[in-house]
Amino acid sequence: MKGLKMYAMTDVGIRRKHNEDSVGITPSHGIAVLADGMGGHNAGEVASAMAVNIISEKIKEEILSIPAARIDEKTGFAGESILTRDAIRFANDSIYSTAQNRPECKGMGTTVLVAVFYADRITAAHVGDSRMYRQRNGNLTHVTEDHSVIHEQVRRGLVSASDARNSIIRNLVTRALGVAPGVDPDIVEDTVIPGDLYLMCSDGLTDVVPDEVIGQTLSRYDNDLKKAATALIRLANEAGGPDNTSVILIKKPQKSGLFSRLLGKG
């Protein structure tokens, strides 16, 4: 997507000794991938790095050859969404095989969140509790829904969102990459309009920083992705930094005033 701006940042946090998160962006192809190696499992950093590298390369290799407006007859999804789904499944098989064949990697896994921007559209696909938000006209909304035990309890009204951040089960995911022979990512398609700002993040941010504070921070640094990312990670660390924190910000800039006037909109 022409004119798309991307920025990625990851931080080890305050309490962890090493970083099991991985991030990758390919602005030229509209690709962003974020993965959070499963805490408490061996070689989580290996799993997250594999997810980011495999998925990014797989999509990059094929996305430019997809015919415009191709729709899959069985699913109703765009061709870019099918490519993204298949890339995630391919990465899952690779990580699972590595975990089975390398003793030092046994039990490893990772969440993954993938965004692919094309024309005026976005495909977001995820497995686990790494999350995507969209800020449009100052309003922050969720693009994805966590695959976690605590999110299911919040959805059912059993606990509040504020209580969920302090729950001892908040990190229990119901779906992850690399822990089973197959996986089904959730896929969301959406229209992107000028001015939209998308945030992809690991739960190192969302476990300790409320949505309203995330939204206020994005509004404050709306036109400076580096400052916005730095501020979000600083907030997570000021809240104790209990986990690795990763963010990717993607912005579709507003049309300039001159360009709008030339279109008769100024």
Rank of each mutant, 00 (worst) to 15 (best):
K2G: 09
K5M: 15
T10F: 05
H18C: 08
G24I: 12
P27L: 11
P27D: 08
I31V: 00
A35M: 01
G37W: 02
H41G: 14
E45T: 01
V46D: 05
V46M: 03
V46C: 06
S56K: 07
S56L: 09
E57I: 09
K60D: 08
E62D: 02
E62G: 00
L64F: 10
P67Q: 10
T75P: 01
G76M: 07
G76K: 08
A87T: 14
R89D: 01
Y96P: 14
S97N: 15
R102W: 03
R102N: 00
E104Y: 09
E104K: 15
C105Q: 14
V112I: 10
V114R: 15
Y118A: 00
T123V: 01
V127I: 07
G128V: 11
G128I: 13
R136F: 08
R136E: 06
T144M: 05
T144W: 00
E145Y: 06
V149M: 08
H151Q: 13
H151P: 06
Q153C: 11
R155I: 03
R156V: 02
I168K: 06
L172P: 04
R175I: 06
A176H: 07
G178I: 02
V179R: 15
P185S: 04
D190G: 04
L197D: 09
L199N: 10
S202I: 01
D207R: 12
V208R: 04
G215K: 12
T217L: 07
L218N: 07
L225I: 04
K227S: 13
A228V: 07
A236I: 00
G240I: 06
T245L: 07
T245Q: 11
T245F: 05
F259R: 09
G264Y: 14
G266L: 12
G266V: 02
